[in-house]
Simulated scan of single mutants.
Amino acid sequence: MILERSMIEDIAAALSTHGFILRGGFNFATSDPPPSGPSGAAARSVLLVGQAGAAPWPHFLRWRESQLQTVANPLDTWSREVIGAVANDFGARPVSPSDKPYLPFQQWAVRAEGLRPSPLGILMHPQFGLWHAYRGALLFEDEIELPEPRDVIHLCDACVDKPCLKSCPVDAYSADGFAHETCLAHVRGQSGAPCRTGGCLDRNACPYGTAYRYPPEVQAFHMAAFAGL
């Protein structure tokens, strides 16, 4: 059986009521080691779920108002609830990037949308820039009908100045990779106030997808989660 595009459109419509979008998908090849589907048999296909810009934020805030403020990882918890409900309605198994053992979400995203990493490690999207995310995926035991893949422009190739590598006061990102502990100490320290309130300076320096840039309160939320504040 092949899941038709009309069903995929229905899934997209259900997700859109929470600010989520479908982020592409693919059918697993016979050489892939696929995860299990809803019945426990091997999954045949995957649809990625995520966001562009901060569209889910108001939906998340309304949910959070009805929850105990002590709920752990509230954004992950809410995302799991939403994606889980949609999965249940359409006979899929929901999975999350934070599930353990970890699933290869980054590899799935590259395969589904043809994106490549920016110097910051975040996948660069030709429309959304760095302002997008993957929140989960739906696994099916049937193949899905997908449009023909298209070539994707990698905007970083045309970016000569690379301001994303020049704006961090502690040079957390470099050709050597991400200096996690250096970044963490800076964000937690007195001089890290701009990062805590307005987000990563390197990420904000990127000239692409600025119409989708997360508002300061959203960036502050993510930075607090990163820094454990």
Rank of each mutant, 00 (worst) to 15 (best):
residue 155 L to Q: 05
residue 111 R to G: 11
residue 171 D to N: 13
residue 121 G to D: 13
residue 148 E to Q: 12
residue 74 P to M: 00
residue 121 G to V: 08
residue 107 Q to Y: 09
residue 93 R to L: 15
residue 95 V to I: 14
residue 39 S to F: 08
residue 98 S to C: 12
residue 139 L to M: 08
residue 87 A to I: 00
residue 91 G to H: 03
residue 164 C to G: 03
residue 121 G to H: 10
residue 71 V to W: 02
residue 139 L to F: 02
residue 168 C to A: 06
residue 169 P to E: 08
residue 91 G to E: 00
residue 48 L to D: 05
residue 132 H to P: 08
residue 145 E to C: 11
residue 41 A to N: 14
residue 68 L to G: 15
residue 67 Q to A: 11
residue 137 A to R: 02
residue 156 C to D: 12
residue 172 A to W: 01
residue 127 Q to I: 15
residue 109 A to L: 14
residue 98 S to A: 15
residue 154 H to T: 09
residue 92 A to S: 03
residue 149 P to D: 04
residue 136 G to H: 00
residue 96 S to E: 05
residue 45 S to F: 08
residue 137 A to P: 07
residue 53 G to P: 10
residue 176 D to S: 08
residue 36 S to C: 08
residue 165 L to G: 11
residue 163 P to K: 06
residue 97 P to C: 09
residue 150 R to P: 01
residue 51 Q to D: 14
residue 47 L to T: 14
residue 110 V to K: 14
residue 138 L to G: 12
residue 44 R to F: 08
residue 42 A to V: 01
residue 83 I to Y: 03
residue 166 K to N: 07
residue 136 G to R: 00
residue 49 V to R: 00
residue 35 P to L: 00
residue 168 C to Q: 10
residue 95 V to A: 13
residue 76 D to T: 13
residue 174 S to H: 10
residue 35 P to T: 05
residue 51 Q to T: 15
residue 59 H to L: 09
residue 90 F to K: 00
residue 170 V to W: 02
residue 91 G to A: 01
residue 74 P to T: 03
residue 64 R to I: 00
residue 59 H to G: 11
residue 99 D to W: 09
residue 173 Y to D: 01
residue 73 N to T: 13
residue 124 M to G: 05
residue 163 P to C: 05
residue 41 A to Y: 09
residue 64 R to P: 00
residue 157 D to V: 07
residue 121 G to S: 07
residue 124 M to F: 01
residue 116 R to A: 14
residue 104 P to N: 04
residue 136 G to K: 00
residue 128 F to W: 09
residue 135 R to V: 11
residue 130 L to N: 02
residue 135 R to E: 10
residue 55 A to F: 06
residue 67 Q to S: 02
residue 79 S to C: 02
residue 67 Q to Y: 04
residue 113 E to R: 07
residue 118 S to N: 15
residue 95 V to M: 13
residue 65 E to C: 13
residue 81 E to N: 03
residue 39 S to W: 09
residue 104 P to V: 02
residue 171 D to C: 02
residue 143 E to K: 05
residue 119 P to A: 08
residue 169 P to R: 00
residue 63 W to F: 15
residue 153 I to S: 04
residue 38 P to A: 11
residue 103 L to S: 05
residue 143 E to S: 11
residue 85 A to H: 09
residue 76 D to E: 10
residue 143 E to R: 12
residue 126 P to V: 09
residue 62 R to V: 13
residue 55 A to V: 15
residue 173 Y to P: 02
residue 146 L to C: 10
residue 141 E to S: 11
residue 41 A to R: 15
residue 58 P to H: 02
residue 138 L to C: 12
residue 37 G to W: 00
residue 82 V to M: 04
residue 50 G to H: 05
residue 167 S to R: 04
residue 55 A to D: 15
residue 160 V to G: 02
residue 150 R to Y: 02
residue 140 F to I: 15
residue 114 G to K: 03
residue 46 V to Q: 10
residue 71 V to M: 14
residue 80 R to C: 07
residue 47 L to K: 14
residue 54 A to E: 09
residue 173 Y to S: 00
residue 57 W to A: 10
residue 155 L to H: 10
residue 45 S to V: 09
residue 65 E to D: 14
residue 161 D to I: 10
residue 123 L to H: 10
residue 58 P to G: 07
residue 97 P to T: 06
residue 157 D to K: 06
residue 103 L to N: 12
residue 78 W to C: 05
residue 96 S to K: 06
residue 42 A to R: 12
residue 166 K to Q: 07
residue 67 Q to C: 14
residue 71 V to T: 11
residue 97 P to Y: 02
residue 136 G to W: 07
residue 146 L to Q: 07
residue 113 E to T: 11
residue 117 P to V: 12
residue 79 S to P: 01
